[in-house]
């Protein structure tokens, strides 16, 4: 046994290390320019396992850009992103093939996630059914409503059990029931140890997460970058 005088510090160090290790995503010093416009200026974001973080801010504050940088879809001009495990990303605009059905999308993603086609469709149906998506009906995604397309979008982000979920206004087009259900699911996902980041413009959502990160439009001189 460690003596009483030293017992506290190693435990404290261990706890700190555990918290550090439990971080699912860590973005530090992120800066991004689009042409001459500075969109993000030295922004940092970290998400621990089991934590729900909301990114809020006015239009043009760089919320979606930060999320896309965290997903690795855009390269930052400065800064670094580290993630633990696989990223599940749900873009604001559903990135889907118009002429494929929800099942065909699930089957398309299956090999990439190391799942069999049957398993991906089964898991996908479970996820979709939780959001009241009509899994028994065959419909190409072009014939789905905006909310239903977004449900497919969300199911694809969740398929295969990602380590961290990055959701860019994922409830676009959801009706009230689906919206409420979404936040109940966020609570369940975080309880299961997932780190969840939600970009939102609804201030009411801030009460439903563990932490809120507010982005502001950076004020930067309009200069030519070298």
């Amino acid at each position: 046994m460690t003596g009483p005088s030293t017992a506290g510090r190693p435990r404290a160090r261990e706890t700190a290390r555990d918290q550090e290790n439990a971080r699912q995503l860590e973005a530090s010093g992120i800066s991004k320019w689009f042409g001459r416009r500075l969109v993000l200026d030295e922004v940092s974001l970290s998400v621990a396992a089991g934590e729900a973080v909301a990114i809020i801010g006015e239009n043009g504050a760089g919320k979606s850009t930060l999320l896309r940088i965290c997903a690795g879809l855009i390269r930052p001009d400065r800064g670094q992103v580290r993630v633990s495990g696989r990223v599940g990303f749900c873009p604001q605009e559903p990135g889907l093939f118009d002429l494929l059905s929800a099942d065909e999308h699930l089957a398309l993603f299956a090999p990439a996630l190391g799942l069999s086609r049957a398993k991906a469709i089964e898991d996908g149906h479970t996820l979709l059914a939780e959001f009241a998506f009509p899994v028994a009906e065959y419909s190409q995604t072009r014939h789905l409503s905006g909310g239903a397309r977004q449900k497919v979008n969300l199911a694809l982000a969740l398929l295969g059990g990602p380590g961290v979920l990055l959701l860019d206004e994922p409830y676009q087009g959801f009706d009230h029931g689906a919206y409420v259900s979404f936040w109940e699911h966020v609570a369940r996902w975080t309880a299961d140890g997932l780190g969840v980041v939600v970009v939102t413009h609804l201030l009411a959502d801030a009460a439903l997460v563990d932490r809120v990160v507010e982005l502001t439009i950076p004020r930067a001189p309009v200069v030519e970058r070298s």
Binding site: R86, P91, P111, A112, G114
Partner: peptide
């Protein structure tokens, strides 16, 4: 038509 989906497919593991 595949471009918007490709990035997600690569994120998924392709």
């Amino acid at each position: 038509t595949a471009r918007p989906v490709d990035q997600r497919l690569v994120l998924a593991g392709y």
